[in-house]
């Protein structure tokens, strides 16, 4: 029992990160129909920037966190301005290729700046791990899960209750129609990249004290987050969060009970199974999936 719980807790931690990456995918997808495969890099940049501001510059916790989120948001903005906007009239597949290129470039820059070593810093709160039925749960894990849940609610409210969020969604459904109704599409696309980058940064900041962070974590995070998003049905925030947690837990169970080498295969197998049998995602609506462009 205690071993099972231990695996579950560690699964929840990684699952929360996948859920946040999945949410990041959804933000950009909802505004542009682009799948941004540099999403994992945003998480890495968030974690490494947090280390830089809090450990290297010795700034206080909150200021470091704000600066780390803001600087990652800025990178999202630059990414949109420099790589997406100049080619915005071309097809979606090309745009997705561009995001892969951006992720490679970002990884290169990160390796130059931070080297290949993993980085970490102190957890948000000091204190002993919490003891539950013979398993331990670190306080930082609770932070990660709490922050994830908080952002799920925030993103849900944003896209479903605010006009700005709905206008952003409208841009993805039909950019020409959005222009006709007077929505400034360029602004919305830029905003989606900034929001999504900031979202990734928050995940990176929260998880680095537990999992450490190094320059090349991005692609794996992107694959897992993408899997979470697909599982939930692309564009559906809640679905991708549940998807993220399921993948995290399955991974940690596989690592614990089968073999740690098999854990990365879990997400890939899930992607294949879903694409074969239920391309709209487990929680996705078939009607909406049929109306989508991609």
């Amino acid at each position: 029992m205690s071993v099972f719980l231990q695996f579950l807790f560690s699964g929840l931690t990684t699952g929360a990160v996948y859920a946040m990456v999945g949410l990041g995918f959804n933000i950009i997808y909802n505004a542009t129909s682009i799948i941004n495969l540099a999403q994992g890099e945003f998480v890495v940049i968030g974690g490494l920037m947090m280390w830089y501001f809090s450990e290297a510059m010795k700034l206080p916790f909150f200021i470091s966190a704000i600066l780390a989120v803001a600087s990652t948001g800025l990178i999202g903005l630059l990414m949109e301005r420099l790589t997406i906007r100049p080619v915005k009239k071309s097809d979606l597949l090309l745009m997705i290729m561009i995001t892969i290129a951006v992720s490679i470039v970002l990884r290169g820059i990160l390796m130059f700046k931070f080297g290949k070593d993993p980085y970490t810093y102190a957890p948000f709160t000091e204190g002993e791990p919490i003891h539950i039925y013979g398993a331990f749960i670190q306080q930082q894990t609770l932070w990660v899960i709490g922050i994830t849940l908080f952002f799920i609610i925030l993103i849900f409210l944003f896209f479903n209750k605010t006009m700005l969020g709905k206008a952003m969604k409208a841009c993805a459904v039909n950019p020409v129609a959005a222009r006709i109704t007077g929505i400034n599409v360029d602004k919305m696309v830029m905003l989606s990249f900034v929001l999504s980058a900031m979202m990734g940064a928050v995940a990176g900041i929260a998880v680095t004290p537990i999992t450490l962070m190094e320059y090349d974590r991005g692609p794996m995070l992107a694959v897992k987050g993408f899997c979470a998003a697909i599982m939930g049905g692309l564009g559906r925030g809640r679905g991708s969060v549940i998807g993220g947690f399921i993948i995290g837990i399955l991974e940690s169970m596989t690592a614990g009970y089968i073999h740690s080498g098999a854990k990365d295969a879990v997400a890939l197998v899930i992607i294949l199974v879903i694409l074969f049998f239920k391309p709209a995602g487990i929680f996705g609506s078939k009607t909406i999936a049929d109306l989508r462009r991609f």
């Binding site: 409208a170 006709i180 109704t181």
Partner: peptide
């Protein structure tokens, strides 16, 4: 517009409200 160009996967109400977004 020709072909209506609705926001096909938003609700009827959201489509209307977005018409006044500006």
């Amino acid at each position: 517009p020709e072909g209506r160009m609705l926001f096909t996967h938003l609700t009827v109400r959201d489509n209307l409200h977005l018409g006044a977004y500006t």
